[in-house]
Amino acid sequence: MAGFNKVVNSYAEAMAGLTDDMTIIAGGFGLCGIPEGLIAQIKQMGVKGLTVVSNNCGVDGFGLGLLLEDKQIKKMVSSYVGENALFEQQLLNGELEVELTPQGTLAEKMRAGGAGIPAFYTATGYGTPVGEGKEVREFNGRPYILEESITGDFAIVKAWKADKYGNCVYRHTAQNFNPMAATAGKITVVEVEEIVEPGELAPSEIHTPGIYVNRVIKGTFEKRIERKVTRS
């Protein structure tokens, strides 16, 4: 009896069920807090036609940028995609579609999706290209646009530690979009640095309760730094 034990022992098991044309919600900001091993597994599986919802699309040769190499991504939903030459090339060739979404709206779309809220009003983007074609409604004299929430077939998440029940904690700013992504997947897979026994993490310190998590796998991480800056 597995009970609440969510631990899987291979990346194949972790991403089992992922097929062409699915939507994947990915945690991470830049290269910080990204599920490196799960991305590598998606590359190895060779699934195509993916819609990927993630703040960024990695860099050339690392992070989600790896999935561009074999043209596995059909559409990106992101707030900023400027770090990636291959991305630019595929976008200009018409091989890749991008839906630019303000960063806070993107986070809220994931949060709302996971929370069962189909849409929400926000002032962000009103009067800009982001607001075009969207319903506008005034509250207290201020115009807001209606934004629809997002859910995915899979969510891929990077946490620092999880217990076997899938309760997760994140480390420093590697938290970013990960807790929102974790709530918004039909199947949520968390790749962690360390798996601990239930009870080892203090209940009040859990960032993501295990109810959102379907699979946990222990990974190893390169943790590449995008912009190393030090005090002069």
Binding site: S79, Y80, G82, L100, P102, Q103
Partner: peptide
């Protein structure tokens, strides 16, 4: 390249 958080910040 994208708006990042700028639209949220100005709103």
């Amino acid at each position: 390249k994208g708006m990042g958080g700028a639209m949220d910040l100005v709103a």
